[in-house]
Write a protein that binds this DNA or RNA. Sequence first.
RNA 1: GCGUAGGUGGUAGAGUGGUCAAAUACAACAGACUGUAAAUCUGUCGCCCAUUGGGCUUCACAGGUUCGAAUCCUGUCCUACGCA
Length: 399
Amino acid sequence: MRFEIEKKGPGLSRAGRIVTPHGAIETPAFIVVGTKAAVRGLTVEMLRDAGVQSVLANTYHLYMQPGDTKIRDMGGLHKVMNWEGPTWTDSGGFQVFSLGAGYGKNVGKVLKDLPNIPLLKERDEEEVKPRLVEIDHDGAAFKSPLDGTVHFITPERSIEMQHNIGADLIFAFDECTSPSEPRAYQREALDRTHRWGKRSLDYHLSKDNSKRQALFGIVQGGRYEDLRKESARAIGEMAFDGFGIGGSFDKEDLHTAVRWVNEILPEGKPRHLLGIGEPEDLFLGVEQGCDTFDCVAPTRLGRHGTVYTKDGKMHIGNAKFQEDLRPIEEDCPCYACKSYSRAYISHLYKSREMLGPMLCSIHNVHFIVGLVKKMRSSLLEGNFDEYKRSFLARYKTQG
RNA sequence: GCGUAGGUGGUAGAGUGGUCAAAUACAACAGACUGUAAAUCUGUCGCCCAUUGGGCUUCACAGGUUCGAAUCCUGUCCUACGCA
């Protein structure tokens, strides 16, 4: 992998290129999530039409089903999913959170009212709390929701699996903590993430795969400035090819946390903001120096009937669209907007025809991927601030 | 015409004397969703006010029994099936 910066913009922003064995990613770029080696509901042709450059799959899910070695034996990630462009895999670190501390709770990745979420009590006191993950010094034990079997994943195992899956860009095994964890726990988890980062890297560099797959280290640290900076220094010093910024954020923390980290990380390596993808957050991430993003929002929201427009999000199932013959967006060149009306897509959605969620996903992917692409153009043209201002002024006008 | 079973909220369908404005499902209406446990989840869903809560009118229609009826009785109308 090679990374080059083409032009710098306001704040820490920059436009560049990540060159992989499967082609280049022009950054800033939005990476579409295809957890189980498939972007839900969309074929690779649809992805290409929507302007997608790269896809991110998930190690934990592919390990559970069909198995990382199966993917390897079937010819690798690119081959099985018929995607010839650059690919990524997440390490499974997010599942330490989503299936662990986040399991069965209403705690997502980005929180709206953090003060109202009670901090977890001391770990050993939360006896009966259902979770599918137990974490220890060496790794995390996952209980499969598929059949209840327990699987222990260490940093070495995660990298080995990612080598088997074969994405161009892979991530170190980390622990994504819940923002509701007290500081003492964040501290402890951060040390663990750093140790795991080092072990991921050592294992990776000891294998031939490191010649064709690039490993990104992950910065954590919750909402604490000192922990975030410490993490950026610790991970930044290691010989990773690039960096991921992880964690679960308060809407406000996102802004500061990303800046703290990117001011420290080596400028010449790419930075990926993990799991972030709402328009406001993308502007913020780009401005604070992130090069790539991934998020399930475009596809999940699309499947659930919410579509992005320049004026804000809207729910296609709402009664007011049932006779609306306009496309989702008047001037949108995506397949859904070129071909179908709101009324028709609304009907598809409500009658549970799978084409409905597909069309909404196509539009959303096109919208978000295109948004970040425009950010890139505006950086190259030197008018990022102006673009940001005009977009957000309009996007915010609707609730 | 006779017999039998039945008529419950937008629909299907529980309930067969009080805890019933009435289970449940679907539909409808709205909301949520940020490294995918998610083609998922949540809320509202007779009417009128209200913050908890309160008031009013409902279970084909009319009348009756009862302290109290969607539930029991009588009649009427309707539906399905069977026999003529």
